[in-house]
Nucleic acid binder design. Structure first.
Lengths: 112, 112
DNA sequence: ACTTCAGATCGACACATGTCAATATGACGG
DNA sequence: CCGTCATATTGACATGTGTCGATCTGAAGT
């Protein structure tokens, strides 16, 4: 926006609405940051596209071509961001996507 | 998924659909990574919420409390990700959000 | 042309992040 | 209980990232 001071100088800056609160911005950034890595994008898409709607780590290491600890680490990031839900059944850990979190983050970012 | 080998051993892993192609995953990750920082979340929300639908750098430094070079750097990241459009008018550079990119990334991630 | 002003780029620094091998944990089967 | 299997955690390392001060680039105005 272009305005003008009392002396006639053209200025650009005008007052602007308040930014998102710091905590909100950090919460939203955490969600997006979790998806800011190609490996985690692949992992989530694999789970979302699976027939059963859930997969365990052993299903995931081979498609992404990374070691088991690395996949485990990435899954923890996705869980901490609230993007997937972890359920232990016997020896295996099953992961299922929770799509609302991504939708909420996007809405909060755009609407407010 | 739980299956069983010819010898009767219970196994977990079954074949699974192919992951997103590497380039698609990287393209999507670039978009989300750009939003994976609280400062950039604030910047985009400030622009999206502004009355004119666009803002210049001088409007943005004060709300986020960072130096001009740092804000400039963050805006470049957002532009490179395709999340905002940059237009030079006179001395000022105006930024406007391009929401389709975020929607597309989300859709590609979830649907395929 | 010289100055001023908005914004971008550069160089440097501290800190975060992705990766792996090695090890720990915890569940199941014999 | 003892071994095995699936997964998590730890420690280490290279690379990436956010930030700033200093400087460069261009556009107006005088």
């Amino acid at each position: 926006m272009i305005g003008m001071t009392a002396t006639g100088t053209i200025v650009c800056c005008t007052e602007v609405g308040p930014a998102l609160a710091g905590r909100d911005a950090e919460r939203i950034a955490t969600v997006f940051k979790a998806l800011g890595d190609p490996t985690r994008v692949k992992l989530l898409s694999l789970i979302a596209a699976s027939d059963a709607g859930e997969l365990c780590v052993c299903d995931l290491t081979e498609p992404v071509g990374l070691s088991q600890p690395t996949v485990s680490h990435h899954m923890k990031v996705l869980v901490d961001a609230g993007l997937v839900h972890r359920e232990q059944r016997g020896r295996w850990a099953y992961y299922r996507p929770t799509t609302e979190v991504l939708e909420d983050a996007t809405r909060t970012l755009i609407d407010s």
